[in-house]
């Protein structure tokens, strides 16, 4: 039969067969900026959580005899106005900032995925209600609302995480809604329906697995946004309150020293910038790897 011959002589059907997930992983591993970023991110987070223990100083140990010192062997990042060790404070600040960002992305993803999937799958008035709520949240000037809520609830890291999640879930919800709506109309979903599959099977096997990729990408972007917003609010004095350090309030406390001791401002700033940069590279890598239309293998 000619039909069999034609399949055997086919190009592209190599010896090994790869699932979508394994292909995506392979594409991701080949995405050099993403892999380097992932490595550096892990390094950075490990430092935030453990490097502070290497120092002999507590984050709130005041030593007025050693105010505003420059970096030294003893105090690698120097000290602040009341002689606290800035290395320990920066690491701990990074830790709090990352914690807030992780909490925000977990919470926002949970809310966003559920509401987005409901809106996308059921459509009609449910969709209208959820979409209008999202629009409402998106049109009010975020910074002002955040400022008001942050002042009321944002003094503690967990409070700030709640406030940021209340704003940022909308992004996840919009992405999930879009992807669900798109896949709901796909012919392979119709095909599953046509062979008699029940809605539960359709959602679990055919729709949700396709949502995961987009949500992962969105989560990375969300992490970046959360860290920037946290820093912004804390810098404005509206976020996490001292003595608990975050990258944002560290910059705020040292901003007067920009001329004399620029490192004191630049170091926490450096961590914010590079955290966001690496996160974005990671997101890029994930997006390329998870794109089902991607021709790269």
């Amino acid at each position: 039969m000619t039909d069999l011959v034609d399949v055997n002589s086919r190009e592209g059907l190599g010896a090994e067969s790869l699932s979508f997930g394994r292909l995506a992983l392979r594409r991701f591993v080949r995405h050099r900026p993403a892999i380097v970023s992932l490595f550096l991110l892990i390094l950075m987070v490990l430092a935030f959580f453990f490097a502070g223990r290497l120092s002999n100083f507590a984050f709130d140990a005041v030593d007025v005899t050693k105010r505003l010192e420059n970096p030294s062997r003893e105090h690698p990042f120097g000290t602040d106005e009341i002689g606290r060790d800035l290395f320990v404070r920066t690491m701990l600040g990074g830790q709090y900032s990352v914690r807030v960002a992780l909490q925000v992305s977990l919470l926002a993803t949970a809310i966003g995925t559920i509401l987005g999937a409901i809106a996308g799958y059921f459509g009609r008035w449910v969709d209208t209600a959820i979409s209008q709520m999202i629009n409402l949240i998106l049109i009010v000037p975020a910074l002002i609302v955040l400022a008001v809520f942050a002042q009321r609830f944002g003094g503690s890291p967990v409070g700030l995480a709640l406030v940021l999640s209340g704003l940022l879930w909308t992004r996840i919800a919009r992405v999930v809604r879009g992807v669900v709506m798109q896949y709901k109309e796909q012919e392979f979903v119709l095909a599953a329906k046509a062979v008699g599959a029940k809605p539960g099977r359709i959602v679990a096997r055919h729709i949700l697995p396709n949502v995961v990729g987009s949500v992962l990408v969105e989560i990375t972007l969300l992490l970046g946004t959360a860290i920037v917003l946290e820093s912004t609010l804390s810098f404005l004095g509206l976020g996490v309150q001292p003595p608990i350090p975050t990258l944002g309030n560290l910059i705020q406390q040292s901003k007067g020293a920009i001329d004399d001791a620029p490192l004191r401002v630049l170091l926490p700033g450096f961590f914010v910038v590079f955290f966001v940069l690496f996160i974005n590279f990671l997101g890029d890598g994930l997006r390329d790897a998870l794109d089902p239309r991607s021709k790269r293998q």
Partner: peptide
């Protein structure tokens, strides 16, 4: 639906890539 079946137009969209 066991007895009535359908083949779709787009051979790319009608198969779940995963």
């Amino acid at each position: 639906r066991k007895d009535l079946q359908i083949v779709f137009q787009d051979p790319y969209a009608s198969l779940n890539p995963r």
